[in-house]
């Protein structure tokens, strides 16, 4: 199990080089995709068993990692502001000696981390894909504060977990209990809404952005605003689909994101990035 020092914590990372999961390695420089998972009930396993192998087989260098507090990455008691998640990723890419601008693909909160990384490290981001996510603006922190406070109240109650088991099955109940443990043992619920944000005009996001939504989740209401504010933006709204786009439509998601990454792959960006930094 690969662990890399990322600032004050140790981060669990899994890589699948292009061609490692079958298929053939591409000629020339492969694109690199960094998958960023969601909050509380999630880990890199969501990609390791779905998009990760498919992307590797399609000739993409894949990086998957556990966010701080999640999976097998360290869980400090404090320090869960958005900028901490973003800095972990910057340290991680340094540790992996990854010099290519990366295609960031984030699910839910992971998409927010991806967008924030692109805003604060523009030279390192080739593109951003947000799956059922909001960009890191002030309104987002309000939504998160509400949701996290509710989750912290409920997920520590046995009756709430029993209800989840009845409604959604034992698997979801187990995930929810794990989420409750994170909320009870860390300051994550207060930290995330109190972190750094970007301006509402989204001008900080300068790379191409793909946003995928389910039409039943409510987040798809952002589509007109994203398209108006971002110069290079594609939005896709999947019909009859709620928030769990990645889990419920893995094949569709894979095809959408692979096409997107291929269309935005510029081989030799490594050299260009170095030259750009020198200017």
């Amino acid at each position: 199990m690969a662990k890399i020092r990322t600032g004050d914590i140790t981060t669990h990372v899994q890589r699948l080089p292009a061609g490692a999961a079958g298929g053939t390695a591409p000629e020339g420089e492969a694109p690199v995709v960094v998958f960023v998972h969601g909050l509380l009930t999630d880990s890199l396993a969501s990609y390791y068993f779905t998009l990760g192998p498919a992307f590797s087989a399609a000739g993409v260098d894949v990086v998957m990692y556990d966010l701080r507090g999640h999976g097998r990455t360290d869980r400090p008691r404090t320090g869960y502001q958005l900028e901490a998640f973003v800095e972990d990723l910057a340290y991680l890419l340094d540790g992996l000696e990854e010099e290519r601008p990366v295609h960031l693909v984030g699910n839910s909160f992971g998409g927010t981390v991806a967008a924030a990384f692109a805003a604060w490290h523009p030279e390192r981001a080739a593109s951003v894909t947000m799956i059922e996510s909001e960009p890191p603006v002030a309104a987002w922190t309000g939504h998160m504060a509400e949701g996290l406070a509710h989750a912290r109240r409920e997920l520590v109650r046995d009756e709430a977990i029993d209800w989840i088991a009845e409604q959604h099955g034992a698997h979801t109940a187990r995930l929810s209990r794990g989420a409750g443990r994170i909320l009870a043992s860390t300051t994550l619920a207060e930290d995330i809404p109190s972190g750094r944000v970007i301006d509402d005009d989204l001008s900080a996001i300068r790379c191409p952005l793909l946003a995928v939504f389910g039409d039943e989740s409510g987040l798809s209401a952002q589509v007109p605003e994203l398209e108006a504010k971002l110069p290079d933006c594609r939005t896709v709204v999947l019909p009859r689909q709620g928030h769990s786009v990645l889990v419920e439509q893995p094949t569709r998601t894979r095809d959408l994101v692979l096409d997107w990454v291929r269309a935005h792959h510029v081989p030799g960006r490594r050299a260009a990035a170095v030259a750009g930094a020198a200017r």
């Binding site: 199990m1 899994q14 880990s43 890199l44 396993a45 969501s46 390791y48 068993f49 556990d66 999976g71 097998r72 187990r174 794990g178």
Partner: peptide, 10 residues
């Protein structure tokens, strides 16, 4: 947990 299966794969 699925993250344990990742470790098993390793």
């Amino acid at each position: 947990e699925s993250i344990d299966l990742v470790a098993l794969a390793g």
